[in-house]
Amino acid sequence: MPRLTADLVLGLAALALALAALLLWLPADTGSGIVERIRGQYRIGDAMGPAVAFGILILAGLVLAIEAWLKPVSGQRPSGLGRAQLGFLLLLFVIFLISLLAMRWTGPALASLLTEGGYRSLRASLPWKYLGYVTGGTILVGSLIALAERRPSVRAFVIGFLAALLLAMFYDLPFKDFLLPPNGDV
């Protein structure tokens, strides 16, 4: 008796979502139809490409559902998404968010505290142009090493700091036209 496997759920979800997108989203979010007539000539409209893509997704959902229904997996670690994966993604998102916030705001925050001109006028000079990148990079690399080791350590953040500093120098010193994050945004 076939079971409700992750692949069957994935196939049915792809089928339902693609069908809904084809019928509801596509007509509402494209400027021209699948085919349109301009000055007596027919041409393919902007909706054709996405319609084909949704069509492929509908076919994919059907094929996957049939595959999963007829030939249930045995003996292999089942694929799927669980709490563990979603928890990992949440941690990853938090690390990325904090790192990018530090990257974006460390320089401007320190500049507003210590200078009168603000960060923008300093962003091409040392050490200001490295501040955000090295701070954010240290947090990103250090936190990810801590995540992989399942414990935070000074060593992880020292590696992060050294890696970020070396990379900043690697990209900045020989290549004058490269902008390190966040200097293209401020």
């Binding site: 979010d29 409209g45 902007d46 994919a60 094929v63 996957l64």
Partner: peptide, 30 residues
């Protein structure tokens, strides 16, 4: 691991490429 999954990847890849492209003034699928 399966044809269905390969097709899902193809369909999603095409969709991602089609966001905001096209010939019409309206940026599609945004």
């Amino acid at each position: 691991s399966s044809v269905g999954k390969g097709l899902i990847a193809i369909g999603l890849g095409m969709l991602a490429a089609m966001v905001a492209t096209g010939q019409d003034f309206h940026p599609r699928l945004t």
